[in-house]
Computed example of a mutant assay.
Amino acid sequence: MIANPFILHGYVSDDLFCDRVAETGIIREHLENGRNVALMAQRRMGKTGLISHFFHQKDIQQCYYTFLVDIYATKSLQEMVNVLGKEILSALKPFGRKVLELFMDCLRSVRSGISFDQYGNPTWNVELGDIQNPEVTLDEIFRYLEMADKPCLVAIDEFQAICMYPEKSVEALLRIKIQRCHNAYFVFSGSQRTMMTEMFLSHSRPFYQSTALQHIGAIDLSVYTEFAIRLFKEGSRVLYADVVEEIYSMFDGVTWYLQRILNKLYVLTTEGGECKKELVPVAITRILDESAFAYEALLYQLPAKQKELFRAICKEGKARNLMSEEFIRRHRLASASSIQSAIKGLLDKDFITRHDDYYESYDFFFRLWLLRQ
């Protein structure tokens, strides 16, 4: 039983997932016809939820093995291989020991790090040091994908992370292995639009024209409004459309923020009660208060020049021409050269994100909290 229908993490069911009918159909069409997909959207727009939704369709579950691997936190090929192997093992658990043993037999280079407990459940005890040659282990993983008794669907989330690995040949290595694997199809999901576009559209890169490109934007306001009102109604609560419209406008329709605020509004609305616009600032204040300690600690860790620039970007909302004299003068910043260095630091730490022609805070709530200080 789900106490609050506005899910913030993971995937639960079709009923608690909003729309993406067209996007799901496009992904299905490409993958079922043997074409890999590069899926692009800004962070927290719902890429991972969309992939999970597609993977949870009954016919997909019956016909394919599905693996969703998040490599956002990985810093090297070795770490990526470890995460990939661990996820495949975990996803295969429900299919029984025979299926698992085929995978384990393929991974000879790290076989000693995989074992069954007393209940017959497999455990991944592979340490990074156990993966002495990640290319060999990766080759073994692809050998399994090719040998599996059902076709495999592999989604690699935050795929652009491989561009930052110290090994410079990872793109080419993966492209070759994927091209030679005829029993698996891939979704490459990424939130850094510039990097993803370069990877898949630049003729000098290994993945050039190797995938179908798909961008996902915000869910239509009317569709999301109907979805939110239905969930409130099923919980014996009344939600007014102007509430959804206000938060949709405030957060540019980014799915996670809508879910986060409606999750809090659902809590603040008693059973049989009404959720009106007056509750929105109350919900946001509660959310900001819950995160205040973390935001204070993060801000404290920033060097002075990065902190000053971060404040300036938050004040602007969508900050353009950061090194222009006008921007520097308006926010009383230092030189253009120091701003350039600060931008890199803020991007590396995920305080800000870059779009085509502007920068903004990665965390919209962080921005609101900072503006209230």
Rank of each mutant, 00 (worst) to 15 (best):
Y358D: 12
I352V: 15
D14V: 07
F365Y: 11
P122D: 02
L201Q: 15
G253Q: 04
K318L: 08
A304P: 05
H30E: 12
C163W: 02
L173H: 10
E325T: 13
G129W: 02
G129N: 13
E234P: 00
D357A: 03
V21C: 01
E146H: 05
V170N: 03
L302V: 08
D242M: 09
L89T: 08
L371Q: 12
G113F: 06
S204I: 14
A336R: 10
G49T: 09
I247F: 08
S191T: 01
T285F: 07
R367F: 01
D130N: 11
H30P: 00
S76E: 09
F251L: 04
F6N: 06
K307R: 15
V238L: 10
V21Y: 11
T197P: 00
I313G: 04
K315G: 03
K58C: 03
Q57L: 13
I71S: 04
F327C: 06
M1C: 06
K305D: 15
A342N: 07
A334D: 12
L201E: 14
G273I: 09
I313Q: 08
C106Q: 08
S361I: 03
Y185S: 15
V69C: 14
D348L: 11
E198H: 08
Q209T: 01
G49Y: 03
I352D: 00
R35F: 11
D139H: 09
G96P: 11
G272E: 10
L265C: 07
D363S: 05
V37I: 10
F207R: 00
R372A: 13
Q132N: 10
A161F: 02
A336H: 08
I114M: 15
K349L: 12
N121T: 04
L100P: 03
S341T: 13
E316R: 11
V282P: 02
T24V: 07
E32A: 02
M147L: 15
A342G: 02
V238G: 02
Y65P: 03
R330D: 04
V69I: 15
R180W: 00
N36Y: 07
D70L: 03
R35L: 14
I352H: 06
E171G: 06
Y248C: 00
S335G: 03
C181N: 15
F310R: 05
H9R: 15
K58V: 12
A218T: 09
E135A: 08
D348T: 08
E198D: 15
T353M: 14
E146F: 02
E198I: 06
A297Y: 06
V170A: 00
V110Q: 04
E326T: 14
L288G: 04
I219L: 08
P5R: 01
H9E: 14
E274T: 12
F67T: 03
F366I: 02
S169Q: 15
W124F: 14
Y144L: 11
A161L: 08
E101I: 05
A241N: 13
A283W: 04
E360H: 04
T48F: 11
T270L: 13
Q214T: 09
